[in-house]
Design a protein around this nucleic acid. Sequence first.
DNA 1: GCGCTCTACTAGAGCGCTCCAGGGGCCAAG
DNA 2: CTTGGCCCCTGGAGCGCTCTAGTAGAGCGC
Lengths: 333, 333
Amino acid sequence: MEDVAARVGVSRALVSLVFRDAPGASPRTRERVLRAAEELGYRPDSAARVLASSRSRVLGVVLTVHNPFHADLVEAVYPEAERLGYDILLSAQAPTRHVRAAVEALLGHRCEALLLLGPDTDPAFLRETARRAPVVSVGRRFPGADVETVHTAEAKGVRLAVRHLAGLGHRRITHIDGGTGAGSAERRRGYRDAMRGLGLGDFVRVLRGDHTEESGAAAARLLLAEERLPTAVLAGNDRCALGLLDVLSRAGVRVPEDVSVVGFDDIPVARLSHVDLTTVRQDVPGMAAAAVATAVNRLEDRSSALRETVLAPELVVRGTTAAPREGAREPGR
Amino acid sequence: MEDVAARVGVSRALVSLVFRDAPGASPRTRERVLRAAEELGYRPDSAARVLASSRSRVLGVVLTVHNPFHADLVEAVYPEAERLGYDILLSAQAPTRHVRAAVEALLGHRCEALLLLGPDTDPAFLRETARRAPVVSVGRRFPGADVETVHTAEAKGVRLAVRHLAGLGHRRITHIDGGTGAGSAERRRGYRDAMRGLGLGDFVRVLRGDHTEESGAAAARLLLAEERLPTAVLAGNDRCALGLLDVLSRAGVRVPEDVSVVGFDDIPVARLSHVDLTTVRQDVPGMAAAAVATAVNRLEDRSSALRETVLAPELVVRGTTAAPREGAREPGR
DNA sequence: GCGCTCTACTAGAGCGCTCCAGGGGCCAAG
DNA sequence: CTTGGCCCCTGGAGCGCTCTAGTAGAGCGC
């Protein structure tokens, strides 16, 4: 910085000012400073910057690196953060690496706020973390944990799916739930309510699962071993639906002719032509934008109240749902 | 830090020393400092640390966030880095975000070296980046780009797969390649060589593809439209194999009875019971360890020569390969 | 000419840490 | 009793920036 200043013949402060895009330098000088910096290969040091300004303008994101839905969110977070002048740093949560470790790393690198994607942790830890920095939980609710929340109206999404299926003539609609996965409890409840709301209370059936392909496969094997299949299955998420589809198709069960399948999330694989999964799409750009905006808002106004942003999901009808076969219909219909 | 020092009744320097785990403090004092810090909720500020020491001990990792193989690598990188006392920062590459942006972010945050996972970029950019910091390209070779390289012996992996298939009696073994994907050119060449080496040169057939499920699906549709299927397909990677399997099974083609399928990578989905894909496993822990070690070694000895670490792959035989049906055998066998 | 404002720029004090050059005790050897 | 060495510990100068308070000088109205 000293060198750049010397080369242009101004003070260090002026150079600093130019690099901060702060007012107070003439266009001509600004231009000369920039050129000198270019020539000398000077790039401001973010550590020093952070230290001096006690602001880093960095948001930390904790993701489960194996989760395709998180991948979508991360991708959507970047442009939004950039728009607001923030930088993004990622840290991974994994079976072998607790959220705690990811949070420590991020905070240690001066992230001003944290976006936790479907964090697999306890409210106590979040409450504690929230005292250190604004925390936004994306996709998972933590009542009473003092964190900002951005999530989809899960129940509504499930309702859309159930109505779609019922509208096609399905009654025996089984739900494979997502266990303790993000949003899973809400989806399970939403399913029960939607079924009852349509007078299908007697057909309610929930299979335990989680948000992986494996659990969908397991559910499929369980169903195949029974006397007859349900006419439709509502999976806890797309990955579960994928596992289900795979095992069903290998067993010679045709989708959607023999059984209809609906997922949740609308991850990229679901859109592939050969999968063509009917699913409930979460508003990824909306969630990313809301998460970033919430964090930034909180940063700029510490006293602001906790927000809960709920985004509307959307049913995307593709090729895995159709009317049940005649023979599969309930008698007396 | 001042506060902690005051509370214990020592100097700031002593506190610094304790937190750096540097020798020169008695166990008793060390203990007291740590307790005081705990009570006051003091945590050293990494920005200041970095600034003062002009070392950050942070490695930057650029990954394609949608890539399950990268997810595996990232997970394996953490423990290795921790062992050597380094921190990891992630930045994503995506269709909407060039490697360049990820690299800038990481370097701006004082990463001392960069691990690029199968970077989708040009040698010129890498050469330029390598002048700024040690760069390790994982899974993709860049001859002449002055970067460290860690990759699998792709040709060997393919050879193992081809031999396995040939050993089962297959001759019409088709390869769906990975286009410009990481390692793809080597795999393609390896396939050709292996086929010729087994006297199967006449059966060489390469279908253009890329490293996505979609390309596997497309290849499957193409094959299904032909007079007869090959008896075995060697996909460019697991994702491609997955797309292929999916379309085949929906078309009523049984795997491995009607056609055998082999993937490459051994990503988590491949191991799932319902997929049970025979594949060539890349040594993920080995690659992660080598990548970290190479970066650290380079950091500690700037003058060290560029290394290329080649790891042996391993054939994992699962349920998608078997001997070809009698009828499918070549006449005259 | 004076006082005023406004623009363009500067000096210098931090930000929170590391690290080096010591400085006292204390003990064993001479 | 000295000397040397070792162990613990301290003071203070940076690291590369930001930011506040302030200066110089130009332009303006009266």
